[in-house]
Computed example of a mutant assay.
Amino acid sequence: MTVVNFEALQQYRRDLHLIPELALEEHQTHAYLLEKIKSWQNDTMRIRTVPELPTAILVRFQGTDPKRTIGYRTDIDALPIAEQTGLPFESTHPGMMHACGHDVHMSLALGLVHYFSQNQPKDNLVVFFQPAEEAKSGGKLAYDLGLFTDEWRPDEFYGIHDQPDLPAGTLSTLDGTLFAGTAELKVAVHGQGGHAAYPHLVKDPIVAASELIMQFQTVVSRSVDPIKGGVVSIGVINGGQANNVIPDDVYFEGTVRSMTRVGLDLMMKRIRQIAAGVALANDITIDVSLESGSYLPVENNSALAQQVITFMQSRDDIDFEVAQPAMTGEDFGYLLQQIPGVMLWLGVNDTHSLHSPKLNIDESALLPGFEALKSLIEWRMAH
């Protein structure tokens, strides 16, 4: 019996950390993963690649006595961030980094594939290596392409996301919504520029944009149930080149987040209404783009989440905490809207946040993370 050990998981993680790639461009990552998976292939396994989504990989194990198909998903893309860790296995791709821990996610998934290639599962098992989580809606692309049909459709889906704020190796989830649904907000305010000394002859897009940004704050404070909450934050604003010239246009971007699908839809509706009102009041044109893509709320299935929590709490060899909801976005939310399942945090104990150029996960999380996931899948197959 082959045992997945810490050294193997660490090597996967470090190898993958060297070669981060952006959404839908994960070709070197794909080749690395496929080489490992093919080296373990046997008669119980099927490996599937998809020409329409060329960096995706699915692995299916035939169960010995299947009652269901369990799905496990990992994301494989990285972020456009220049690494600043100074690690000996620092990113070799300039301006790209696994700053969200997808190297960890992939390593655990490889561990699961290796383990179940040596220990045939009782139920059918599908492991999905998903491209484009950080951008370009890889989960939605995969689902819309029909990847999860017939024998490839899981009855339930599981996945993890690393969490620097938790002790290394600690698992955490909840019965309910773990992560928020998010939408990318892009706004173009088109006015009529001119000399700043003659404001009556222009249609000032800076004043209108300022009004719009302030009005957007009322979406959460006055349109959203305060118990449920939400976020509207602006992170980018551009307009003008000289202090005495009113520009024609102002552009700004932000994020909109809610813990429920209904809440996200409401917030997007109110933003469009406010923009239309400000445009009318200022006699200008405002273009609003709101794209949620696959970043829907990560809503854990209640019955499955309760089972996961009960299992984790019953095991002396698993460190577990009940989670609090987070405004983090994750496109596993789209798949959980289609197929019931559960996402969990895995603690990686770092003082730097996700998406930090200095994120340096504690690798001691790898083996307990793998063991907990492997045990959970086997327990679920026995119940």
Rank of each mutant, 00 (worst) to 15 (best):
A78T: 10
T74I: 03
Q62G: 08
G63Y: 05
P54C: 08
R68L: 10
Q84N: 12
A82K: 15
L34H: 09
T69D: 00
L34S: 03
L87K: 03
L53I: 15
E83Q: 04
A78P: 14
V59D: 02
H98C: 11
E83N: 04
R46I: 06
E90V: 11
P51S: 10
W40P: 02
P80C: 03
D103T: 10
P54H: 13
I37E: 00
A56E: 03
W40Q: 09
A78W: 02
T85G: 03
R68D: 10
P94G: 04
T64D: 06
Y72F: 09
E35W: 12
E52P: 02
P54E: 14
R73W: 00
D43Q: 13
I47L: 09
G63S: 02
G101R: 05
G71Y: 01
Y72A: 00
L87D: 06
T44D: 11
I47C: 08
E90K: 13
K36R: 15
A56Y: 00
E90G: 11
I81Y: 05
L58Q: 13
K36C: 09
Y32D: 13
D65A: 13
F61V: 02
K38V: 11
N42C: 06
A56Q: 01
L33S: 12
R46Q: 14
P80Q: 02
T69V: 00
Q41M: 09
M45P: 08
E35K: 15
P94Y: 01
Q84W: 11
D43C: 05
T64P: 01
